[in-house]
């Protein structure tokens, strides 16, 4: 990085990797990056172990080895949707749910950690005055900002992908044990729950969302570099105020729709639409990376994120400890 080009009287100098060590530093300080997914994964495994007594039965029904007796449906939307399926399809779907849910839980955990991490990233060091120590070392403000940005942009998504994969493997291994003990082939499960496909689709979705949400990450970091207190309020209030102002002043809601699209719309372009709706189909053929990358909104968001990070570096240079 900053390996010197000049060689003054060559006293002992060793090669340095400021970016690499700054990222390591972030992981030392913010152990929630891996502890939170670990904790959530532990809960999921326990719940799955508890629920696995019904696994063999579900596999038999889904595979047509057992005809399900008509069961009284629970009230509610999910039950109504399930009512349209055959018992076998319903059982097959039940087999998929743990894998989808564990992926979703890992992603939600990573996103939550990312929000709090980004909001504290350049605020905490000013608050506890450690910024004076970090600035006493030959690491530029830009290197520091980038080393912090890489956590929500790359490390947390990677943690989500890897931990979901590990969870899938653990659930599969346990399922294989349970099914073998019941005299069934573990392969039957994979017929209904294509775990590998689920994981690849999940990894692709997480990577897409990390890029799609990059401007949000940039905004949160910008607030953390700028605010003197109450970072969360500063992050949330201005966008909402703009929406409210637009609504009251012009009676329109473009800002609100824009925000909503940014928060919830990330995967619309990333996957092909399915006729069955959500979770209806699991196939790698639905992945549309080129369509996703061709979306100007994605690149607009990334440009905004880059501008935010540049502003973070500019601010970090000037802001005093709080």
């Amino acid at each position: 990085m900053s390996a010197s080009t000049q060689a003054p009287e060559a006293p002992a100098r060793h090669p340095v990797r400021p970016f690499y060590w700054s990222v390591r530093r972030e992981l030392w300080e913010n152990r929630a990056i891996y502890l939170a997914p670990l904790a959530v994964a532990g809960v999921i495994v326990l719940a799955f172990l508890y629920a696995s007594h019904g696994l063999a039965r579900e596999v038999r029904i889904a595979s047509g080895l057992l005809v399900a007796p008509p069961t009284p449906l629970a009230a509610g939307k999910a039950a109504a949707a399930a009512a349209k399926m055959t018992p076998a399809a319903r059982a097959g779907f039940a087999l998929v749910v743990p894998y989808l849910a564990s992926g979703f839980a890992m992603m939600a955990t990573a996103a939550a950690v990312g929000v709090f991490y980004a909001l504290g990233s350049l605020y905490g060091e000013r608050r506890d005055r450690t910024v004076l120590f970090w600035k006493s070392l030959p690491v530029s403000d830009l290197t520091t900002v980038l080393s912090k940005a890489v956590v929500p942009l790359a490390i947390l998504p990677a943690v989500a992908i890897v931990s979901a994969g590990a969870l899938h493997l653990i659930l599969l291994a346990w399922s294989a044990l349970v099914l073998t003990a019941s005299g069934l082939s573990p392969g039957l499960l994979l017929d209904h729950a294509p775990v590998g496909t689920i994981w690849v689709m999940f990894a692709y979705a997480v990577a897409s969302l990390a890029l799609w949400w990059a401007p949000i990450t940039g905004w949160l970091m910008l607030v953390s570099a700028w605010a003197k207190r109450m970072t969360f309020l500063w992050a949330v209030t201005p966008p909402l105020a703009i929406c409210l102002f637009e609504r009251l002043a012009f009676g329109t809601d473009y800002a609100w729709r824009f925000l909503h699209q940014r928060l919830a719309g990330g995967l619309q372009d990333a996957f092909a639409p399915t006729p069955h709706g959500r979770g209806g189909e699991l196939s790698l053929s639905l992945i549309r990376p080129l369509q996703f990358l061709a979306d100007p909104a994605l690149w607009g968001g990334l440009a905004f994120a880059a501008a935010c990070l540049a502003a973070c570096a500019w601010l970090r240079r000037r802001r005093d400890p709080i």
């Binding site: 390996a3 060793h14 340095v16 990797r17 690499y20 060590w21 030392w28 300080e29 070392l137």
Partner: peptide, 17 residues
Amino acid sequence: WIRVSQALDYVQGVHPR
């Protein structure tokens, strides 16, 4: 929050002198 060993690692990692 930093450990003594981590402080040594970090400074060594970023400071050429």
